[in-house]
């Protein structure tokens, strides 16, 4: 496919006896943000570092901009922007010097000062890199990744440790990159980040893909949902179920709080309230709860996404 920036299939990578990646496949396209979502140790960074050419795959096929990253040359590197998870600067260099230096390595770079202003780094231009705060280092790493105007950027946990404003500036820049036709592949374990930024989400756990799709597809998957309401204790739940479609379940738990699970659509909501009306029951706090990516993740992996 012409707009495929990253194509990985059946990727396998072990470190000694530890199987970090076990047959992983993914696709990232130009003009889209693809999020690799997973807990620590899921294999996200290993996968990304293989795509960046830092590590070699044991087996499987990896094509980044049509090239095997293990055979990367200078020209390929200029097409790929990389944000490292930690560090990535000369300790004694000033932040501005680092951005200007990476710009000097590219033929048509962004204006380093405008980029730093955009990321809220203007005030630390003359600060030694080793004295930057964690959040400033993160944004410096992002600036270094994009200053050469690459067509694909890898961002490893781009907003880890950022305050709200810095996170917003980062999100906006990522949105602009996408709008400019850049392919963005980022890793995160922040649900809201994947939900808000990504066109495609690839959920990874234990070195394999457990689900992928757009955030909407993933959260709508199976159309399962739940409806919760509060009413007097001791309602006849079995009788309520009789008024609802097959495959629906209902429990009172805790007393006075009722939970209906199944395909929650307008008709079902109407049936529940109609049954309450015929039995003279006033239901309050009626709430339809949709699945979030976090729910999807918990169902798929049974583990917590955040540390």
């Amino acid at each position: 496919m012409s707009d495929a920036a990253v194509e990985v299939s059946d990727l396998v990578k072990s470190y000694g006896r530890v199987h970090a990646v076990k047959g992983l496949s993914l696709l990232a396209r130009a003009g889209e943000v693809t999020a690799l979502l997973g807990p620590n140790g899921a294999g996200k960074t290993t996968t990304v570092e293989i795509c960046e050419g830092f590590r070699r795959a044991d087996s499987g096929s990896v094509r980044v901009l049509g090239v095997d990253p293990a055979a990367a040359d200078s020209e390929w590197r200029s097409r790929v922007g990389v944000m490292l998870q930690t560090g990535g600067f000369y300790p004694g260099a000033r932040a501005g010097e680092m951005v200007h230096h990476l710009a000097a390595l590219a033929r048509h770079p962004l204006d380093p000062d405008a980029l730093m202003e955009r990321l809220g780094l203007s005030s630390v231009r003359r600060t030694a890199c080793r004295r930057l705060s964690g959040g400033e280092r993160q944004r410096l790493g992002l600036a270094l990744a994009v200053v050469g105007r690459p067509e694909l950027v890898f961002l490893d946990e781009p907003t880890a440790g950022l305050d709200v404003q810095a996170r917003r500036a980062t999100w906006e820049l990522i949105g602009d990159l996408r709008a400019s036709g850049v392919a963005v592949l980022l890793t995160t374990h922040a649900m809201d980040e994947a939900e808000r930024l990504a066109d495609a989400v690839v959920i990874i756990d234990g070195g394999t893909v457990v689900a992928s799709g757009s955030p909407r597809e993933l959260t709508r998957g199976g159309a399962e949902g739940q409806l919760r309401f509060t009413a007097p204790t001791g309602l006849d739940v079995t009788q309520l179920l009789g008024a609802l479609p097959e495959g629906t379940s209902a429990v009172e738990q805790p007393p006075g709080s009722y939970l209906v699970r199944g395909v929650i659509d307008p008709a079902l909501l109407a049936s529940v309230t109609a049954w309450c009306a015929t039995h003279g029951v006033l239901a309050s706090d009626v709430k339809v709860e949709q699945r979030t990516l976090e729910d999807v993740f918990l169902e798929l992996t049974g583990s917590e996404l955040r540390r």
């Binding site: 097409r79 000097a104 033929r107 690459p150 067509e151 820049l173 400019s180």
Partner: peptide, 12 residues
């Protein structure tokens, strides 16, 4: 002044 559209090339 911040045209993010791709224009990749290594410097000489």
């Amino acid at each position: 002044g911040l045209d993010l559209s791709p224009s990749p090339a290594a410097a000489p």
